[in-house]
Each structure stands twice: as C-alpha cells, then as structure tokens.
Simulated scan of single mutants.
Amino acid sequence: MNRFALVIAIGVVVFSTSMLAQGNQPDARPIDPLGWALLAGCVLGLLPRRTHPEIALAITGGAAAVHFALGYPYAFWPAPALIAVFTLIAADRRAAGWIGAGAMVAIPATAALAQPSVDHMVALLIWGLIVLVAAQLAEVSRARRAYTAEVERRAAEAERTREEAALRRAQEERLKVARELHDVTSHTISLIALHAAVAAEAVERAGGPGEARDALAVIRTASREALTEMKDILGVLRTPESPESPESSDALDARRPAPGTERLGDLITTAGVPVEMEVTGVRRPLPPAVDLTVYRVVQEALTNTIRHAAASRARVSLSFESDGLVVRIDDDGRGRGGLETGGHGLAGMAERVAAVGGRLSAGDGPDGGFQVVARLPLAPAAALPVGAS
C-alpha cells in the first residue's frame, strides 16, 4: 500500500475512534490541542516507515506513550506503533522491533501496577496479547520473505550452474576438436608438403615432365596454405577464455580405435626423417588415456621436427621406470626455445600430459637440437621385460 494512503487511512481510524471514545469515557482527560497534536504525531510518524522504520517506531511509540500517560481516552491511537513494530520485525530488524514491542507493553504495565485493579489487569492482558500477535505475524512475514528469497537464490544458482556446465562442456569439445585437428590433420598435411617437395626435387633432377613439377608445386603450395588456415582455425577454437579441464575425456570417434604405442612403428616409418626408437625398462600395460597420450606426444614432436627443426634424424625413447613412463624425443635440428615460446602443438602436448597426471618439458637439447620429455605416471601392474628395439 502507498505510504500516504496508509497514513490517511490510519489517520481516519485514529481520529474517528478518539472522538467517539471521548464521549464514551467521561473519566478520561478531554482531548485538547496537545492531545490532537499527539494523535497527529502517532499518525504522521508512519511516513518514514519504509526507509527508516526505527525512526517511525520512535515517533509513533513516543507519541502514544505520552498520550497514554496524560490520561486521554483509550482508542486506536496505538495502531501506528503496532504497524511500526510489524515493519521492523518483518524487515529482519528483529532486535529493535521486539524492544519496541516490549516497551509498548511495559509502559501500560507500569501504570496498571501503580493503580492495580481487575479492569486494568484484564486490559493489560488483552493489550499484551495484541502486541504479541502483531509481533508474531511479523515474524511469519519475515520467515516467508526469507524463504522466498532463498528459493529464488537457489534457483538462480542452479540456473547459473547449468549454464556454466553447458559452457564448460562446449569449451571442452572445442578443445578436443582443436587438439585432434592439430594432431591428426596437421601431421598428415605436413607430410604431404614435405614429400611433395622431395618429389619435386626428384623430378627436377631426373628431368621429368614440367606438368609433374607444376602439379607438385601446386600440392606443396596448397598444403602450406592449408596449414596456415588450420592454424587460424585453431586460434579460434583454442581461446584463452576456455581452459581445458583435467576431467575432459580423450574419447575419439567410436568408429575407429584410438591410436597408441602399437602404432608408433607406422608413425616413425612415415615421419619423413630417419627415426631411431628405443624401449627400455620393464614394460607394463598402459591405460588407454596414457597410451593415446604417448602416441600424440611422439606424433606432435616428430611433426615439429619436420616443420621447424630442419633436422636430419630423430630419436624416440620410451623408458619404463618404477613409478612411471618417460617419453623422450630428440632431434639434431636447430633449437626453438621452450614451452612458453611454442605454438598450439606444444600447448596441446602439455594439456594432454597434464590431463593424465604427468609433466611435460620441451626445449633445446643438451647436445644441440630440440628435446621433448614427457613423464607419465603408471599404476603398478604385472610386468613383462622387453629389450631395446
């Protein structure tokens, strides 16, 4: 209700009942200008009820107490003070509200004890019950508002959680797409560009037809452009605002098996440079996620060797240790700095290794060239000894 409408309505009730009470209570003090001013104070004190309920209670309660103490007729002039008490408690300012309610009962109780009589005691009891009912109704209103606010807060939190989960899943899918696109397609296109260049040089040395040289040049140029465009696409998919969660899976297309260490031989054969592979230690079965990670790390490291290192040969070492597996890839090309200076490939390798609880380091090798080292944890299992290969 509008505060002015409430004040007008309460004013009509207070002034009308006081005028009627003056005729029905001949023993009471007639309402003089001071009495009417006190009644006006009771009513107008409700104006700041919304913004400053404590002030409203002080004005309405004080005016009512003085009006009572001066012996004016009983009527509905305590109603504004009851409304102020209700507002305070309902607004969760319970201490001030209950102190006001206690004062509204204590003041007439003092007068009743000064002149004890059955009528005074009955009137005091009724008045105390009225104040208690008003305060309890305010508590109910406060609890209902608090419950409604909590329900709305939880609903908003649940909605926000759903939105965040959906966004996180979308971001994880984008990163998986970016990583698989880089690891698989980029590697293949790099091989196409490399072998096209080799074939073009062979045709040139053999004095082959010009159409073949032109076709190979087109293949080489197109593959390089495809790599550049793919890098741009990866930059869009792999945004800084979408870090990958360690819980995201490495699930591939269910229509084909995920590559692993069993396919490292095929990978090395098509690497484009001579690659020596060595496996040492006591071999243990690899979890699928770790098996895939080993393959992708070797694949990306060899791709970087072909594209950036200008290397003539590389070496891949798998070392099974007591607490895990160490994957090391070395080449004899030019160094390229560390992880922080790498592109999407090194970042993808680091993410893959971290996702299975491992650590990745990359940088210039101790004897020149570039070195990538991935340390992957392995659970204890039955071991099979294998020799170097």
Rank of each mutant, 00 (worst) to 15 (best):
L292Y: 06
G369Q: 04
L318M: 04
E159C: 13
I130F: 00
Y74W: 15
R315Y: 01
D27P: 07
A314N: 02
K231H: 13
W127A: 09
L325W: 04
A96N: 10
P377E: 05
P366I: 07
T110Q: 02
P259F: 04
A289M: 02
E204Q: 15
A84E: 10
A199N: 00
G348A: 13
A347P: 08
R169F: 14
A388E: 08
R224G: 08
L325D: 09
E152Y: 10
F86M: 04
A28H: 01
R169D: 15
A146Q: 14
D364C: 11
D32N: 03
E300K: 10
E152T: 10
G210V: 14
A63E: 06
L339R: 13
G348V: 03
L47H: 04
L39F: 04
P257A: 05
A381G: 02
E229D: 15
G348H: 12
G35Y: 03
L124I: 01
A217E: 14
A37S: 15
L20R: 12
A170Y: 12
V273L: 13
E351V: 08
M121S: 09
F86Q: 03
V43Q: 05
G260I: 07
G35I: 01
L113M: 12
L376Q: 03
R50M: 11
A197C: 10
I126L: 14
D27R: 03
G210H: 12
A79W: 06
I130N: 02
S249P: 11
H67C: 07
S248W: 01
A90R: 01
I268F: 05
V275K: 02
A158R: 14
M121Q: 01
N304F: 11
R375P: 12
L302P: 02
A170T: 12
A206D: 05
A138P: 03
R315Q: 11
G62L: 02
K176R: 15
M1C: 09
A123M: 06
A65Y: 09
I233M: 14
A206G: 12
T185R: 07
